[in-house]
Simulated assay, not measured.
Amino acid sequence: MKNFALVGAAGYIAPRHMKAIKETNNQLVAAYDPYDGVGIMDSFFPNADFFVEFERFDRHIEKLKRNNTPLDFVSVCSPNYLHDSHIRFGLRRDADVICEKPIVLNPWNIDALEDVEKESKGNIYTILQLRHHPSIVALKQKVEEGDPDKIYDIDLSYLTSRGHWYYTSWKGDVSKSGGIATNIGVHFYDMLTWVFGPVISNTVHIHTHDRAAGYLELEKARVRWFLSINYDTIPEAIKAKGMRTYRSITVDGQEIEFSGGFTDLHTVSYQHIINGTGYRIGDTRQAIEIVHDIRNKEAIGLTGDYHPLAKGELAKHPFSRD
């Protein structure tokens, strides 16, 4: 049984990490979050110690070490801009670190962390759960076994409504979240490059506070993508069903069904990490480079091969650079 500490216990994604720790038959011994609304811990680890001040959390972890209680893993679910610091904390405690995506906001942060990792006893792992999804694994196998010269046409659409709270939270601050492409798109970019190969070109058509659209040319695919957190952009047929989220990936016009199974993929990811076969920080580089480039490119407007859902959006919401 491995001992875990968790940084960011009150966040949206934290319960999936708690569930993964429990379902892999391990123990959460301590957790930290400046917000104390963490009653969800009772469903998984009611006896775990909890702290709202990082200094006291740090002191407790040191106490465990001096009492010969090993800390095997630190799971990081904090806001994006704090990942770098919290990963370093885990490595300094001689623990392996499991960090949510995006693991960092900029490619050079990966370089720095890899240097620290080499000097440490621990390793840095991340959650790239779509690489474990059966539909995506099957797609990758199909591409690898198919015509080596074939270039696939991909449409990626991810529209997930967010309320006014979003813009008050750290997620609405580009300097802290990395913007919409980083916040809700990074795992899709990772999946696409994992399946279809590295980036050849990266074009941004629209980039505002609540939506982004662009075109990625990959080694084996042409990808039109559209991301939005604005309910108004959701297709009317989806709204009519009472749904506030629309997620779609088509390959050569055929829908890839991957809506189910998401809640169990963190457990699968944890099992691979504990077995020594999890994804390392270097595996995240391509996706981090993509979102960094999107964040810093000038949006060119609706020219060239843009996503169908982006049509008409410029008149309502002029594009801007985050």
Results as ranks from 00 to 15, higher is better:
152 Y>S: 02
214 G>D: 04
148 P>K: 03
148 P>C: 05
302 L>W: 12
320 S>T: 13
158 Y>L: 11
145 E>I: 08
140 K>H: 15
299 A>F: 08
200 I>Q: 13
303 T>Q: 14
24 T>C: 01
169 S>F: 09
125 Y>F: 14
245 T>D: 10
141 Q>C: 11
44 F>I: 08
147 D>S: 11
27 Q>A: 04
318 P>C: 07
79 P>S: 06
183 N>L: 15
204 V>T: 05
289 E>G: 08
245 T>S: 12
217 E>Y: 08
136 I>L: 13
133 H>R: 03
203 T>G: 04
63 K>G: 10
193 T>H: 09
242 G>D: 10
65 K>C: 08
93 R>C: 09
225 W>K: 03
1 M>Y: 02
179 G>N: 07
176 K>D: 04
216 L>F: 02
260 G>W: 08
267 T>S: 02
53 E>G: 10
200 I>K: 14
196 F>Y: 07
236 E>Y: 03
216 L>K: 01
7 V>M: 12
79 P>Q: 05
35 Y>I: 12
229 I>F: 07
139 L>M: 10
221 A>E: 05
264 D>K: 07
108 W>E: 15
133 H>W: 01
124 I>Y: 07
135 S>E: 05
165 W>I: 04
107 P>W: 02
147 D>L: 00
158 Y>P: 00
166 Y>K: 01
155 D>H: 14
165 W>C: 01
143 V>M: 10
252 D>M: 09
99 C>L: 06
93 R>Y: 14
215 Y>L: 10
190 D>V: 01
18 M>D: 10
108 W>A: 09
55 E>W: 02
195 V>M: 11
134 P>T: 10
206 I>G: 00
79 P>M: 01
86 H>S: 05
253 G>S: 10
256 I>C: 06
85 S>C: 03
